[in-house]
Amino acid sequence: MSALGTRDLLGVALRLTLVQCTWNEAGLQSAGLSFAVAPALARVHKEREALGLAVLRLGAPFNTHPYLVGVLAGAVLRLEEDGAPDEEVAAFKRGTMGPLAAVGDPFFWGALAPASTAVAVLVTLLFGPLAGVAALVLAFNIVHVFVRVAGVAVGYREGPMGLHRVAGWLGPSRTAALKVLTAVCVGAILAVVSSEAGSDAPKWAGLAMGATGLLGGLVVTRGKPTLAMFAPVVLAAALFIEVLA
């Protein structure tokens, strides 16, 4: 019989939304993780002394992808409930936080966020802003909320093995598919914007704009994508062309 029920696990998932709130250079996410699992740990460890030690074990610096911290928290609760030794819990946390971040960052930040943004912008241009906002919120959150909430349950039910299952959900093939979706949407965005901007101008102007966007993307694919830092410069250039030309 498990010590934690669905309600406890949902409570952990809800509190884990605050895990980034206390991020700092000393403990990284450790204070947020402790805050999230402390009520559940109190149900696992009935004795005050054991509870205090369990919370202290979470004090070591800890950092992983914020959306995947749920599965790790669930697995830690399983280890605590099974009475795993201190070293095993600490080694599990230390050994899995890096690989989990390595799975989560490319999927969420490198693929899902850009894909949902590109889809939302295209939907906005084609069907209007309300449809675009709905697309943005739904496309990102259906996946992200599922991983956050189900991750805690899978981690608690399956223990350390649950990490493999959750990592499998976010595999490289899905990341690659989302990147292809982003590229197709960006091409379509360029076509829509170029056709609208070129309505008063010669036809080649719209094509040149689209080609410029693609070329810009190609130029920076090999470097770190810090291109948006130049946004104010590009907009200032547009301002001066408009006024001074």
């Binding site: 590109a118 914007v193 410029t212 966007g213 590009v234």
Partner: peptide, 16 residues
């Protein structure tokens, strides 16, 4: 148009 074209280049640079 420039803002969005530039944004598209940023998007490509991120995933591409």
């Amino acid at each position: 148009a420039m803002a969005v074209i530039f944004g598209s280049a940023v998007a490509m640079s991120c995933v591409a």
